[in-house]
Amino acid sequence: MSEWFTLFSNSLPEFWKGTLITLLLTSTGLGIGFLLGIPAAVIRIYGSKYLRWLAIGYIELFRGTPALVQLFVIYYGLPDMGITLDRIPAAIIALGLNSGAYQAEYFRSAIQAIGHDQMMAARAIGMSRIKAIWNIILPQAMRLVIPAWSNEPVSLLKTTAIAFLIAVPDLMTKAKMVATRTYDPIGAYLAVAVIYLILVVILTAILEYISRKSRIPGFDLEIEAQRST
């Protein structure tokens, strides 16, 4: 046990650097996913026929295949088409696209939970469709989505570990380096497991706080949440 603590404390500077990369991947991936997820959800519900199929295709393809394979397609596959990306941008784009598909589904269930009635009421006072989506539907959906959406940052944080497989210097890669150096793979991987767990616990606490703060007084609707690795 004390050996393990020695390993842990000796490797702290490395783990810290890895943590920063992991957090970078998580936050940028989440941001891209957010920016993709909302329009994908809106188009899937309100779009014209062809646009709708486009949104469905994006969402279902990225939810129906492993994030790891998506990452490999982008990092190893795209160069075949002349698009070569560095490791970190490739990881960020892959994670963003993946997260966007999952976020789109969270937004979609929130928008659908709000229902046609609110749209009708908005149209009845003369709002256009776009205005109604922007002023009435989305503000409610954004609040409603929070409890279910709160799973996504944690889920994405865990997914970022796959970046290790294209040698992005994240936490997991640092674990491998420490494992090689110390000949103690169990100790090294256990150490980053603990760090991931701490990050997840902190992130969960923050999201729960936001979730509590953002409730609309007197208005309760719950939508479903599911694991989305």
Partner: peptide, 11 residues
């Protein structure tokens, strides 16, 4: 227009 179930904007 006034609806049977009010349809106020909840947010």
């Amino acid at each position: 227009m006034v609806f049977q179930n009010f349809l106020l904007f909840n947010h």
